[in-house]
Design a protein around this nucleic acid. Structure first.
Ligand SMILES: [Mn+2]
Ligand SMILES: [Mn+2]
Ligand SMILES: [Zn+2]
Ligand SMILES: [Zn+2]
Lengths: 126, 126
DNA sequence: GTAGTATTAGGATTCATTACTAATAAACAA
DNA sequence: TTGTTTATTAGTAATGAATCCTAATACTAC
């Protein structure tokens, strides 16, 4: 059974308070302000445990390191090609697309993920 | 200016003859049959050069190592969650989606990529 | 409190990819 | 053909994200 530790709690609390889709390193830096001697291994292990608990999810965007966010219903992402920022996109997920492709191809399709790329607001104006 | 080498040519020739979206390692193993002492560094460097030449493109699917394919027009991919196989999907790329999201969000959207996940033909039946 | 065990810190390890470098081989002109 | 230039190579070292390992620690149930 899972024990409740301040390390795990701090990681989850940080993720619950941000929309930034942070990397493990960014989470480490942030949590270290509160628990200065937490180790990176602990961060990685807890990120895995929290995933297994269904509380957070891991995001693997094109050619970047893993990012993490609190578990939400499926949604699309945008990544700025200049500054790397990652944003949630409100556009509804097209479940019909999965059915259509499954029918056409004979593949069993569980889901799909979609990533937009371009320039964020800040990076457009400079 | 680029020089023409048998190493670069063998890598490109292999990619032109497969639909398998191979990894750098798989390309290395294959090309080594022809050029036994080619080094992995040479494979990686040529994969980069061939990309810069616009002849091939790199594929970064969810949480996997890079895969490579001959440059084609934009298309979606499917990855089997069991065997890892990667397939091209014929479904037309929805450019209208980019415009719609750009309009709604104010982001400058260059393109999007989409990855289906599920079970391939082989892995469904066993 | 005590016992049992999940968790931790910190270091070692793995693995894909990149960087480095002296030797090699394209390209091209004399 | 020979020489010169310079991109490319083979081989090895280095990097960096992520995982693994282990003795010490701290939850939790009793
Ligand atoms: Mn998100
Ligand atoms: Mn493809
Ligand atoms: Zn930006
Ligand atoms: Zn399969």
């Amino acid at each position: 059974m899972n024990k409740h530790t301040k390390q795990r709690e701090a990681i989850l609390r940080f993720l619950r308070g941000t929309y930034s889709h942070p990397t493990a390193d960014q989470i480490y830096d942030e949590v270290r302000k509160e628990i200065p001697n937490i180790s990176k291994g602990t961060v990685y292990r807890n990120l895995k445990v929290l995933q297994e608990m269904g509380l957070i999810s891991e995001l693997n965007l094109n050619g970047t390191v893993s990012r993490f966010e609190v578990k939400q219903e499926s949604h699309y992402h945008f990544r700025c090609e200049k500054c790397g920022r990652v944003l949630d996109i409100g556009e509804p997920v097209d479940k019909e697309l999965d059915r259509r492709v499954a029918l056409r191809t004979g593949l069993k399709i569980h889901h799909h993920q979609l990533e937009f790329q371009g320039l964020c607001h800040d990076c457009q104006h400079e």
